[in-house]
């Protein structure tokens, strides 16, 4: 069951189109998976529309020309584009992605196998920061780390724990520099997440500390 959702402020900014693109995308993916947030969003949009459409600007002579121009335009074809569901593939496994992320299933730059039974595929969104699909096999874990910025994670399939609590499919997780955590999974089917990171990770233990001087390189 989904327990963690974007807060009202985040949903409202999303509905207004005011969030950073990466943040907006992961919120959109959550609302694809979460009925509750989808309903909330519908209400927020109706309220925003009521406010935005309450005021009208003064009449403008340019409107007449605009109307005439628009009426010259043909109707859109109305032909439904057949919607082919794309799956994310990894090592013989297939994952169905939420609608918002579908288009990125084949825009990954290949999977990299990382130590700790981890697989990671970066998604090139052209945003500041980075976006990745990460798959943890059963018994997999990420070295303990904290964040310089904010990490948003959406659990797409399976469940995991980070030493702070457990997370289930659909959960929307926000982590910032206050948290030191060690994500791991014991689920048989492993766990697939999508995450957006606005600053490099800061590794805090063991050999992984070596990575800190290079986190900019990881991050490029």
């Amino acid at each position: 069951m989904i327990k963690l959702h974007p807060n009202s402020q985040q949903l409202s900014e999303f509905a207004q189109g005011q969030c950073d693109s990466g943040v907006a995308l992961i919120i959109a993916a959550h609302t694809d998976m979460c009925r509750q947030c989808k309903q909330k969003l519908t209400l927020i949009e109706a309220e925003l529309a009521r406010e935005a459409m309450a005021e009208k600007s003064s009449p403008d002579p340019a409107f007449d020309t605009m109307l005439a121009n628009i009426l010259q335009m043909p109707a859109a074809s109305g032909i439904e584009v057949s919607y082919k569901q794309k799956k994310l593939e990894l090592d013989g496994k297939e994952f169905v992605l939420p609608r918002s992320l579908q288009r990125y299933a084949d825009k990954i730059n290949g999977w990299s196998h990382l130590p700790g039974k981890l697989w990671q595929a970066r998604v090139d969104l052209g945003i500041d920061g980075r976006a990745d699909f990460t798959y943890m096999e059963k018994g997999g874990s990420v070295p303990e780390h904290t964040h310089r910025g904010t990490e948003l994670t959406l659990v797409l399939d399976g469940e995991f724990s980070d030493g702070i609590r457990n997370y289930d499919t659909g959960d929307f997780i926000e982590r910032s520099c206050d948290h030191v955590h060690t994500p791991h999974t014991e689920a048989d089917e492993g766990c697939l997440v999508f995450s957006i990171l606005d600053k490099p990770l800061h590794f805090t233990s063991g050999i992984a500390r070596l990575l800190n001087p290079f986190s900019q390189l990881f991050f490029k």
Partner: peptide, 28 residues
């Protein structure tokens, strides 16, 4: 992608550059 209001649009397929992934193993 995020707010399907006029579901007919497909975004232009921007060229995705294959940039190199550096892994923990490689750094090691």
């Amino acid at each position: 992608d995020m707010w399907p209001v006029l579901c007919e649009q497909t975004a232009s397929d921007a060229e995705v550059s294959l940039d190199h992934q550096v892994t923990l193993e490689q750094v090691g």
